[in-house]
Design a protein around this nucleic acid. Structure first.
Lengths: 353, 353
DNA sequence: ATGAAAGCGCTAACAT
DNA sequence: ATGTTAGCGCTTTCAT
């Protein structure tokens, strides 16, 4: 017994190893393993047995080299804490699993250098397709790398990218929220949202403006807080609004995370909802229904958006595989809807009104 | 102008294309691209320029074929909704990004056939390492596939796997929760947790038993509900407990999702916390602090657990890369801690007591 | 400083 | 039914 027999060989076995052990040619082994018709049942059996014995595992890299296409699908997102990213990750993982693809997940923290590295790695691995939530400052090189791939933009869309985009009409959602508040009699409405360098941030803020205009309510710049989509920012923004000399009678949030942080600050401040303050959140995680009073919110089906984007990507992948030219890049925009629960009500009549 | 000039060539450029265009040999191109010392600056410049022009992207599959190792790290989880999976995904994605690895995410829905397929695909792609939350019925073939790889088990551990495991001492956490309730004077304590075929489910239930024993409280089988870790099960289990002829004075939940569903049912039932019922959740997502009353809970640092598992994996990958034999598989168990907030209190004195 | 040639593991023509 | 050969794109000796 040679020393190397003690442990399974460090190097994985190849079809040549099987061929040598059996006195066959490696192509016969390949055919047997892939269940080709004209191989005798006996040979197939022997090959399979030996393969199992040697713990043979086919090298998909070598296979890819021959076929010039992998089975990888890339997902490039800013954070994964974000409800939209999380939903997309879950839905895409599930679809990939069913379709026999493998999901490569890249988180970029909205850093365009990291984004470039990740996209490059995906292209190097000859990923079949890529779904991306593009960073606001997406680099020219990244755009170029993506230009020749099957790509779908999700949630955000970037001017440098020509790929189709699936997003949610944040403007419509926020405008509907403002409208609802206006109907209830609110004038001093605050908005806590993303910065406008993100396409989502810009759109949702535009919805705020539009909503305010249609209500005939003036926008007080002191009641607009834009920042990163983190709970922490929501917390400080909401706390600041409540402590200001002329606080708002209502606050609308621009993301689920901002709602989460903001809600915590509001709770800590001991403000009563909706008597002292009306609140409208964004998104609709289960806990919006757990809190009391339950949160009114700008809701939307993240799942539907994710499914739509994935279907679009799969179609483009199929087109590319068949050498067909890609259809012109359409952009799909899904509508959110307002869910009125318990955190919205009439503003208190205040002295002077 | 030939027709093929209209669009960028369908087939990606190779170093040979660059070599031909420049009248060089492909090995020179390879060296130039990889910045080898003995290549003239001029050649390097020309090569790089032409590469950019042809939109050349190195084929990492071919590279892998030479080097026999990829830069892929696999993560195999049951669902991604689960807080533990989500945290691991986030932390691992971040670590991979920093270390230059790529994360391949596989969701299996606790289906052992799917799990096998995913693990096989990972081995076929010559993934450097794998972190897995093993399914309860993990197949023998899967175990064998994993036996020769760098693997770390996370959260759960499966007897068929010899890989090191990083988990959380659920038994200790649940026992501490029961102990706390016992101190407050509770006897009729209910447990809503995972089925015992999962190692986590078994461990947490064992903690329930142990806690009850140490309190001298009898276990009423009608107050124990075990099922899948879904919000839906938490909802029905909690509702059932509240409607039973002899309802509990306290409920302890065994996962975050069960807590979520259960909390909703409790809220709907109009039960007052903690006057009518004490509740202890599991995990500690932000919303546990948003609800009123705020949720007491069995908390733990999922992040720390994830970091620990990843460090362990990276060490094993390094060992394997250097041909060192792997250190004996240690299992690390992290301790949870009880956070007492507002949903726990003394049981109401009842008639007959 | 550059070229020629071999080979990584696999599949697929093209022989027998 | 099986063997021989070539080649996918790349890196890496070994020459020159």
């Amino acid at each position: 017994m040679k020393p190397t027999d003690v442990l399974p060989a460090r190097q994985p076995a190849t079809i040549k190893d099987i061929a040598n052990a059996l006195g066959l040619s490696h192509s016969t082994v390949s055919r047997a393993l892939n269940d080709f018709p004209h191989i005798s049942a006996e040979t197939k059996a022997r090959v399979r047995e030996k393969a199992a014995e040697l713990e043979y595992v086919v090298n998909s890299g070598a296979r890819t080299l021959r076929h010039a296409s992998s089975s990888l699908i890339g997902l490039v997102v800013p954070h994964s804490t974000n409800e939209l990213s999380a939903t997309m990750t879950r839905v895409l993982a599930s679809r990939c699993q069913r379709a026999g693809y493998q999901l490569v997940l890249s988180m970029c923290d909205d850093d365009e250098e990291i984004e470039l590295r990740q996209v490059k790695a995906l292209r190097q691995a000859r990923a079949l397709g890529i779904i991306i939530i593009p960073a606001p400052n997406l680099l020219e090189e990244t755009a170029q790398l993506l230009s020749s791939a099957s790509v779908v933009q999700f949630s955000r869309s970037h001017p440098r990218l020509s790929a189709p985009a699936v997003s949610i009409d944040g403007a419509k959602g926020v405008a509907a929220a403002i409208h609802h508040l206006g109907q209830l009699g609110h004038h001093r409405i605050a908005y806590v949202g993303l910065t406008s360098d993100l396409s989502t941030g810009a759109s949702r803020f535009a919805g705020f403006r539009r909503g305010m205009e249609s209500c005939g309510a003036p926008i007080d710049p002191a009641l607009v807080r834009q920042g990163p989509g983190l709970g922490e920012f929501g917390r400080t923004a909401a706390a600041g609004l409540l402590q200001s000399p002329a606080p708002p009678t209502a606050i609308v949030f621009g993301t689920t995370e901002l709602t989460s942080g903001g809600y915590e600050a509001i709770r800590r401040a001991g403000v009563r909802l909706p008597e002292d303050l009306s609140v409208i959140g964004f998104g609709d995680p289960p806990w919006f229904r757990h809190v009391s009073p339950t949160l009114s919110t700008i809701a939307m089906s993240f799942e539907e958006a994710a499914e739509t984007a994935i279907s679009l990507l799969l179609r483009r992948i199929a087109e590319a595989a068949e050498g067909r030219p890609p259809e012109p890049a359409v952009s799909l925009v899904l509508d959110p809807y307002l869910i009125v629960r318990e955190t919205t009500g009439r503003p208190r009549a205040r002295p002077g009104f």
